[in-house]
């Protein structure tokens, strides 16, 4: 630091020299914390269960940890629901417009696919007490 005042004011090239080993460590840890916070907090919590209803009545409540297909009989036919770890979808439905099928995989808590013609709905529930009190959330 030959001319300290000038180096203090001028945007110098040796900014990195101001960082001490512990600073790198601290910044590194902070960066990891920031990195983790994104997936952790931007998922809105993990969906834990798939809830299948017909005419509003509970048909099945399945944890999103297994591979499974279930079939639900409705007024116009069979609705097939597929469950995989962390996600669920309506695989097939006899409804004319296929809205609930085309919605694809549901992954977030409170997401819902409604097969209205066949009176069947598939929704995901998150951790109890969280955002579980909403009627529905669209993403």
């Amino acid at each position: 630091m030959a001319a300290p005042l000038i180096t203090a004011i001028m945007p110098g090239r040796d900014w990195l020299s101001l960082l001490r080993p512990g600073d790198w460590l601290c910044a590194g840890i902070a960066l990891i914390v920031v990195g983790i916070s994104y997936p952790l907090l931007w998922q809105g919590g993990n969906a834990e269960k798939a809830v299948v209803r017909r005419d509003g009545a509970l048909i099945a409540e399945l944890p999103l940890t297994l591979h499974k297909r279930i079939e639900v009989d409705g007024p116009i036919g069979k609705t097939t629901i597929e469950i995989e770890p962390g996600r669920a979808r309506v695989l097939s439905d006899p409804g004319p417009r296929q809205y609930c099928v085309r919605q694809g995989w549901l992954t977030r808590p409170n997401a819902i696919a409604i097969c209205a013609p066949n009176h069947v709905s598939l929704s995901l529930s998150g951790p109890a007490g969280g955002a579980g009190h909403n009627d529905s959330v669209s993403y």
């Binding site: 101001l18 080993p21 512990g22 600073d23």
Partner: peptide
Amino acid sequence: HLPRRWFGPVTLSILAAF
């Protein structure tokens, strides 16, 4: 009170900001 030799103002600043 962290050792100044290893931890400079940047550490303090990051901790304070968080």
